[in-house]
């Protein structure tokens, strides 16, 4: 098929469709993929509770990972809060490398920032204490807010697994 042929077909199609396609009644994004996991053939892909529930279940079956008043209507400095929260997540994941088995929860009350999460018991308590102090100190300095790191530990990675798909 030559290019001219193709062009003709296309113009024909568009002429036919312009009459109909002026009004869209269906949603544009029919296929939403973020935060959803595909079922594997062997059904051995582990999911935490957080991963097992897709984003539309937020406020129904699971709650937010960031708690602050900036998300509310009329909240102040929402963009700054979002960027800071992302920074905290990146910093924590890098500092506690491979230790977090849950999402990092950032809760803000007044100027206090609480960072919570679940870590593995794979490093010695001494190192954990050091990392807590280190992260708290650096985050408080960077964000100019008192920061607290409140962790829970699990013996095994599998403790947080909710289901396998």
């Amino acid at each position: 098929m030559s290019l001219v042929n193709l062009k003709q077909i296309l113009t024909k199609c568009s002429l036919q469709q312009t009459q109909r396609s002026l009004l869209h009644t269906t949603a544009i994004c029919n296929r939403v993929q973020s935060g959803r996991y595909r079922i594997t053939a062997k059904k051995d892909f582990p999911l935490t509770y957080e991963m097992a529930n897709p984003p539309h279940q937020i406020a129904h079956r699971k709650s937010w990972n960031s708690w602050n008043t900036s998300n509310l209507q009329g909240g102040l400095r929402s963009s700054e809060t979002a960027v800071e929260d992302m920074f905290i997540r990146k910093f924590m994941l890098g500092t506690w490398h491979g230790l977090f088995v849950s999402e990092i929860i950032v809760k803000r009350q007044h100027n206090m920032i609480r960072v919570a999460g679940i870590i593995r018991q794979s490093i010695s308590p001494r190192k954990v204490y050091f990392l807590i102090g280190y992260s708290e100190e650096l985050l408080s300095y960077w964000l100019q807010c008192p920061t607290k790191i409140e962790l829970q530990t699990v013996a095994d990675r599998k403790d947080v697994i909710f289901k396998y798909i």
Binding site: T48, Y49, R61, S102, I105, Q152, V160
Partner: peptide
């Protein structure tokens, strides 16, 4: 805390949902 279609909800150990809520 949590929703399970069959059976009881996840218990308090290693439950991130309980850590989220104030």
């Amino acid at each position: 805390q949590g929703y399970v279609s069959k059976g009881s909800p996840p218990d308090k150990y290693a439950n991130a949902e309980l850590m989220k809520i104030p």
